[in-house]
């Protein structure tokens, strides 16, 4: 073999290895995350390390059914994680901390258990301490019964309430709205000459005046994506997983403290007037933030932003009051 031939062969080999091999090597260094149903292991790995200020590349794939991926409290579009496909995604974290990532497409009864964390390290020191949520500063016991003792006959009319509130110059500030239940406001009006029906109409209007169509639309979307599978599309607690939840609850609670606990596994009915009209927005915030502690209701504190929770709560009251949805 001539020297020139040997040299050219060498050059060609190096070029081929460089062109094909380098991107392949770089691609293989990005961690690949496998998604499985929670019963079969959830995310592997479920803890990911990252650094603040540096982009984090991830590859996602599913081993069984369609899943989704999103990071909680982050303004990002959720991506689908499909079996047989690899989804590439790049995330940017500005602040260090522990972030929760979660499955966004329903994948069974234990869908909400599919969560993992991203530990973002960094030296950013100008972090503000988080303020406690409203239900904590109001010192609410979110597990105490809170049923309203009087409920309206039929849905209160917002338009009727508007004119009545104007005539009697009644208003409700946003702070008062967050801390009081519809029933408390209704009860507070008892010294007026108004009938019960009129008082409920006013309450409906006051609740509507503390929300916006945008917030309701956002709440509706969040509800459909995250709540409707158990609580039902119309809020009646009859979602597609309600029966399965009750069955699972019965099985798991049998050795514990009896029938009362079993009931807790049924999703709450938002069309139940006594329950909803006796609940303050702050109380609902607590329930959503913390979750149901073993009842099947997930804790949303690490997923939703505060604004998203208030929008969702505004939407929950729309099962009681006739807002333009």
């Amino acid at each position: 073999m001539k020297r020139a031939e040997l040299l050219s062969r060498l050059i060609v080999t190096v070029a081929v290895v460089g062109v094909v091999g380098t991107p392949l090597y770089l691609w293989s260094r990005t961690p690949i995350i496998h998604a499985r149903m929670a019963e079969n292991g959830g995310w592997t790995p479920d803890v990911i390390q990252a650094e603040a200020g540096k982009p984090l590349h991830l590859k996602l794939t599913s081993d069984d059914v369609m899943h989704g991926f999103a990071v909680g409290q982050m303004d990002m579009e959720a991506v689908s994680v499909e079996p047989g496909k690899v989804t590439d995604i790049t995330l940017n974290f500005e602040k260090p901390g522990i972030y929760t990532f979660y499955c966004t497409r329903w994948c069974g009864l234990n869908h909400w258990r599919m969560r993992g964390t991203i530990e973002v390290s960094g030296s950013n020191t100008d972090l503000k301490p988080a303020s406690p949520p409203l239900y904590v500063s109001l010192n609410l016991d979110i597990d105490a019964p809170h049923d309203a003792t009087v409920v309206p006959n039929g849905q209160p009319s917002v338009s009727n309430g508007q004119s009545l509130a104007m005539d009697n110059s009644i208003s409700l500030s946003h702070e008062e709205y967050l801390a009081s239940s519809p029933f408390e406001v209704f009860d507070g009006l008892k010294n007026s000459s108004l009938t019960e029906e009129e008082r409920w109409d006013i309450v409906a209007y006051l609740w509507q005046s503390n929300t916006t169509p945008d917030a309701l639309a956002n709440g509706k979307q969040l509800y459909a994506q995250n709540c409707a599978a158990c609580h039902g599309e119309n809020g009646a607690g009859d979602g597609v997983f309600a029966d399965d939840l009750a069955a699972t609850g019965e099985a798991s609670m049998q050795t514990m403290s009896g029938a009362e606990n079993m009931m807790m596994q049924t999703p709450v009915d938002f069309t139940d007037s006594a329950r909803m009209l006796g609940a303050t927005p702050a109380l609902l915030q607590g329930k959503i933030l913390r979750g149901g502690m073993g009842t099947g209701m997930p804790m949303w504190g690490s997923i939703f932003t505060e604004g998203q929770i208030w929008d969702l709560i505004a939407y929950l009251y729309s099962f009681q009051f006739e807002y333009p949805k």
Binding site: R105, W106, A224, Q225, C227, A228, A229, C230, E233, G239, V240, F241
Partner: peptide, 14 residues
């Protein structure tokens, strides 16, 4: 098949 129409349903969203 034949009509080439499709939909996708998430649980909880008809």
């Amino acid at each position: 098949d034949g009509y080439d129409v499709s939909i996708e349903a998430n649980p909880g969203q008809t």
